[in-house]
Design a protein around this nucleic acid. Structure first.
Lengths: 206, 206
DNA sequence: TGTACATCAGTGAACGCGCGTTCACTGATGTAC
DNA sequence: TGTACATCAGTGAACGCGCGTTCACTGATGTAC
């Protein structure tokens, strides 16, 4: 039965949101069209009223995931207008990024740590969307987090360390809880010890 | 037609080697049983003479991948018995790990950077095998590369940075060559600037 | 050391399940008059 | 503002392809005597 244009747009948005969560939890290959539609409260048949293909949904989900992540990043540093506040926000960001809670909820956290190695195999539009997302996230991170020095290079190094650590921590979580925990705390300590250093906050090296 | 036991064992080894390359290139889901058998010069029907399931092959491939990687690591530092040689080997390792050549040949390089986010979704035996591999690699890395301080923690931080950078560099390679290149060189520079520091070689922070 | 038979690695066709995609249908919405 | 008709979001069955897995078969190897 036909529904309001507005209702249809909301349905589509819910499908994209569901996909943004599920793609991080299960990967693009592990995600089913029917499953996503069900998670959005719909049946699978109507999928192609909104998307030309599963890949088109994948692309929309990747954009959504980066949009959310970047918005969250900006919000975390929104009020940090003094050096002290900036350092506090930075430490909070690190502690949260490398927390058990984040590790155990990939569906709600960093796109790069959840999809990074898959993304290297994406084709066409999905590959483009992911690369654009990485660039946007790095850009936002460099702008917000850093002053002086080569901000972009520092942002790259810091994010590499963060995403790598979260990814490795997740890979071990199910079977070696101690190692998984040690990865989180080791990298947390390493990065936190730098946030106070003037002009090189969050840079893993300089 | 029946063949020599020895020949059969060689065939199985070739299948595992092919899988070890292909799983890094395409991921476990993207890898087909028939494809792996063909790459090993066989037909798909005989697969179940060697393995109980595709997952069992996956497990063997993951072990093989880590075995190869750790052997390569050990070899690189084999003759480094002085501090100067150790620093040189370390710089060589970093330069190679974060090279275009490595980036463009996932099938022959680091398991963690090629499979990390997939591994977080592995189940059962594959998950265990991967986690064991990470632990073995970290152990080898800590023993070989580091002296003094908390070697294991430093190894974790350094490897997180390396795997994260290689992964991100690959995700951008197809669509944003400049960014991909910048990721490699930024992290190369950041890590290389530390290898000479006494007692904290390769530690991203201390 | 030969000989006869059982074993089993490899082959290629076939099965069957999952999943992306298509399709006929429904009925409320949007629109033309 | 009503009215009649076309549109189209949503439904659920069905299609069809890919791929993991199974199976009957082959013939050389391994083994029992």
């Amino acid at each position: 039965m036909r529904i309001t244009k507005e209702a249809a747009a909301q349905n589509k948005a819910r499908v994209v949101e569901a996909a943004a969560r599920l793609i991080r939890e299960k990967g693009f290959d592990g995600l089913g069209v029917a499953e996503v539609m069900k998670a959005a409260g719909l049946t699978h048949g109507g999928f192609y009223n909104h998307f030309g293909s599963k890949e088109e949904l994948g692309r929309a989900a990747i954009r959504e995931v980066f949009d959310t992540a970047i918005a969250g990043l900006r919000q975390r540093f929104a009020g940090a207008d003094t050096e002290a506040k900036r350092v506090a926000a930075l430490n909070g960001y690190i502690a949260r990024y490398l927390s058990e809670s984040t590790r155990d909820n990939p569906g709600r956290s960093c796109p790069m740590a959840a999809l990074g190695t898959d993304a290297a195999r994406y084709q066409g539009a999905m590959q483009e969307e992911f690369a654009r997302g990485v660039e946007r996230y790095l850009q936002a991170f460099a702008e917000i987090v850093q002053r002086g020095g080569d901000a972009h290079a520092d942002a790259i190094t810091a994010l590499s360390t963060l995403t790598g650590a979260l990814m490795l921590s997740r890979a071990c979580a199910g079977t070696n809880a101690a190692l998984s925990q040690r990865i989180l705390s080791a990298v947390r300590d390493a990065l936190s010890s730098q946030t106070g250093a003037p002009g090189m906050a969050l840079a893993a090296a300089r």
